[in-house]
C-alpha cells in the first residue's frame, strides 16, 4: 500500500499546464490495469493521486469527457452489422426527426452534418449496431413505420471492413508512443 498523501496535496487539484496536458495524453490511451490506476498516472506526471482524480472529475463536469469506462470492440462480440443510416431531411423538420431517432433503443448516435450538393444530400446521420444485416434492416423498417418516416429519402451504409478502430487522440505530444500504435484490424465480415 502507498502512503497516504499529505493534507497540503489534498487541498489543491491544480496541475501545471504541462502536467495537465501530460495527463490528457496518458488517459487517452486508457487507464493502466493496476489496483490504483490513478496513482499510476499521477506517478507518470509527477502529481498526487488526488490531483489526478480531481482533474478527471473536473473534465467530466465540464463535459470534456462524455463517458468513462470500457470501450468495446463490438465486432468481437458478434455485433458485425454496423449501419450508418443517412437521411435527407427538410431543414425545418430535422429537429423533430432527430429527436425521434434519438429515442430509439437501437440508435447509438444521431448527428446533424452539412450537405454537399449535388454529391451528398444527407444531413442527418445515425448509427445502428446489430448482429446481422437482416436484423438491423428490420429494426430500421420498424422505426420508420412506427414514426412515419418512410417518405424521407435515406441510405443505409453498412461497413464491410474495419481498417482502423481506436480512440481519437487530440494531444500534440505523445507521451506513450508505444501505447498509441494503431489497432489496425482488417476484419472482413459478411
Amino acid at each position: 500500500m502507498m502512503a497516504q498523501p499529505l493534507m497540503s496535496e489534498l487541498q489543491s487539484s491544480h496541475l501545471t499546464v504541462e502536467q495537465y496536458s501530460q495527463l490528457f495524453t496518458a488517459i487517452e490511451s486508457g487507464l493502466p490495469l493496476v489496483a490504483q490506476p490513478y496513482l499510476a498516472l499521477a506517478e507518470q506526471i509527477g502529481a498526487s493521486e488526488e490531483q489526478v482524480i480531481e482533474t478527471i472529475k473536473e473534465w467530466q463536469q465540464q463535459g470534456l469527457i462524455r463517458r468513462f469506462g470500457l470501450v468495446i470492440h463490438h465486432r468481437k462480440l458478434g455485433y458485425v452489422a454496423n449501419a450508418m443510416v443517412v437521411w435527407d431531411v427538410a431543414n425545418e423538420d430535422i429537429e423533430r426527426v432527430a429527436e425521434l431517432l434519438s429515442q430509439q433503443k437501437v440508435v447509438t448516435l444521431c448527428y446533424r452534418r452539412p450537405r454537399f450538393l449535388p454529391h451528398w444530400p444527407y444531413n442527418l446521420f445515425c448509427m445502428i449496431h446489430g448482429k446481422n444485416r437482416a436484423q438491423v434492416l428490420a429494426q430500421l423498417d420498424e422505426i420508420c413505420r412506427v414514426n412515419k418516416l418512410q417518405t424521407i429519402d435515406k441510405k443505409v451504409l453498412f461497413s464491410y471492413k474495419a481498417y482502423k478502430q481506436r480512440g481519437g487522440r487530440y494531444s500534440n505530444t505523445q507521451l506513450n508512443k508505444s501505447a498509441t500504435s494503431t489497432a489496425a484490424t482488417t476484419t472482413r465480415n459478411k
Binding site: I27, E28, S29, G30, L31, L33, I56, W59, L64, I65, R66, R67, F68, G69, L70, V71, I72, H73, Q165, R166, G167, G168, Y170, A183
Partner: peptide, 8 residues
C-alpha cells in the same frame, strides 16, 4: 476491450 478510459 479496446481500452478502459474516457470517450471525449
Amino acid at each position: 476491450l479496446s481500452r478502459l478510459g474516457p470517450v471525449l
